[in-house]
Amino acid sequence: MIAPAARDALQNWLATQKALQGVSDHTISAYSGDLTEFLTFMTEHKGQSLGLAPLLRITVQDMRGWMAFMRGQDIGSRSLARKLSAVKGFYRYLAEKEGCDPTAVLSARSPKFQRKLPRPLAPDAAQDLIDTIDLQSQTPWVSARDQAVVTLLYGCGLRISEALGLCGRDIPIGPTLRIIGKGRKERVVPVIAPAREAVKKYLELCPYRVEPETPIFRGVRGGALNPRAIQRVVAAVRMQLGLPATATPHAMRHSFATHLLNAGGDLRAIQELLGHASLSTTQAYTAVDTARLMEVYNRAHPKA
């Protein structure tokens, strides 16, 4: 059993991540699961209830034991890297609060893995998906709502949480939108005319009053729209159009970035539009473009 002091330290760290770093509820839940799993292993590994004192004395051998155990549970490299990142973040917090030396934890090497490249849609497929979403509901305002959300994802490169986080104070939507993204990072994104028109059409049909502090996009009962509703309607359209399983709401954001890059967009500018903290994240789209060029080369070159 995890000692109360260790559990309290974990809860305090999670609260700090949410309040100061703007970490999403989904990520907080993942961190909580990863750290609870880690602390449970260390408790059993050490053969004692792991209070703060022994928690701060974890060795390199202890970390190797945990990582070997994870591997034995068929945890893949990507998942293990995520878990290790959470553990390191927690120990940085403990080092700051308790004055301990986190070297044994921070020196643990993250397993190498090949990053998955974004899977964008072709421009015509992205447009077909947006057009077909309008036909999915017999309730006009729901159809307009779903189409407006997906148009924002593709037209502005928004995350679904960012689109659904728009409130009455953001309307009427003009040529730009001020978005608060991951880590409470603020950015300004241009809004193309089709996206503005889609939102305007939805608001004209929406039966619910939109106040400055209430969400623009509503569920059928009037509450905030759940992302699952958009995921379901995109899945239905994907099957109708014969698109791959990678055609998800988030793929519309990938498509936005890739299509801009293909049209000659500047990588730094795209980084700002997407709200990426690191340019290396945005550079994944150059790999997509290179992969596409190599595919064309290998298919078309007479000597290939």
Rank of each mutant, 00 (worst) to 15 (best):
R184K: 14
R268A: 05
A126T: 11
L261P: 10
A287K: 15
C206M: 01
L293K: 14
P120I: 13
P4Q: 12
T59N: 06
V189Q: 06
H250S: 01
T103M: 07
G265N: 05
E211K: 12
I192W: 02
Q283F: 04
A125I: 00
V150P: 01
D289K: 09
T281Y: 11
A9V: 02
R209V: 13
G47K: 11
L261G: 07
A195L: 05
D101N: 15
R57E: 15
T27M: 04
G264A: 03
W13I: 09
K97N: 09
K201L: 13
T151D: 09
Y93Q: 04
Q231T: 01
R221T: 13
D62A: 10
M42A: 06
V150A: 14
S77M: 05
G33I: 10
A108V: 12
P302N: 02
T290R: 15
E186R: 05
A6D: 03
I179P: 02
L243C: 08
L153Y: 10
T246H: 08
D266H: 09
L117P: 04
S32T: 09
R268I: 05
R184E: 10
T258N: 03
T286W: 08
T132G: 00
Q138V: 15
V105G: 02
M70Q: 14
I75Q: 11
F41S: 10
A30T: 12
R218Q: 03
Q147K: 15
P207D: 04
L203Q: 13
Q11N: 14
V189D: 02
L225V: 07
Q73S: 11
A19L: 15
A122L: 13
L243T: 07
P227N: 07
D124Q: 12
A247Q: 10
P172R: 09
P207G: 03
G22Q: 08
V149P: 08
L20G: 14
L117C: 08
E44W: 01
E96I: 11
D25Q: 09
T43C: 06
G99I: 12
S278P: 06
Q114D: 14
V234K: 07
T246Q: 06
G65Y: 01
A235H: 11
A81T: 12
R196H: 07
A122C: 03
T258C: 02
T282Q: 05
I230T: 06
L203I: 15
E44K: 13
D289H: 10
D266F: 06
